[in-house]
Amino acid sequence: MKKLLITLNVNGRDVEFACAPNQTLLDALRLDLRLTGSKRGCDDSSCGACTVEIDGEPMLACTLLAAACEGQRILTVEGIAEHGALAAIQKAYGEWGGAQCGFCTPGFMIAVHSLLEQNPDPSEEEIRAALSGNLCRCTGYNQMYQAVKAAIEAEKAGRRAL
């Protein structure tokens, strides 16, 4: 199978590499670009551990073909941190127990990041709905809600300080 030479824009950088037409975006990220933050948890597009942002919308990297993502902006968990420091949501997930084993966490980081980009002050229901496409087996989700709320408060405080 002939490989295609493609360019992906990942976390703000253009990366050119050879990619088989049947390569998923998840495999391209993990194997070719060595961005192993996005995880493979299922094989049936149900778990959300591979969630990345494509042009600002959360999508499943395991369900996209890498070659079909040319020309789009891809944000992975590795691109969430701000200036080498933890983003508010990353810090809050640590402090509030939002991450236990951490395997689902990259997917949740993207899901929450997208939520807060689109809606900086979501209601409890909106938070719950935004998280409902990602499975977690450790936390029962309860502490994640606290983390998201803490991150929102931290962002608000940060904005006030500016």
């Binding site: 933050g37 968990v77 590795e78 969430i80 997930y93 991450a99 084993c101 966490t105």
Partner: peptide
């Protein structure tokens, strides 16, 4: 915070 939590939230931690 768990001592390995930053690795988990940044995707840097290795499984």
């Amino acid at each position: 915070a768990l001592v390995d939590s930053a690795g988990k939230t940044t995707g840097q931690g290795k499984y």
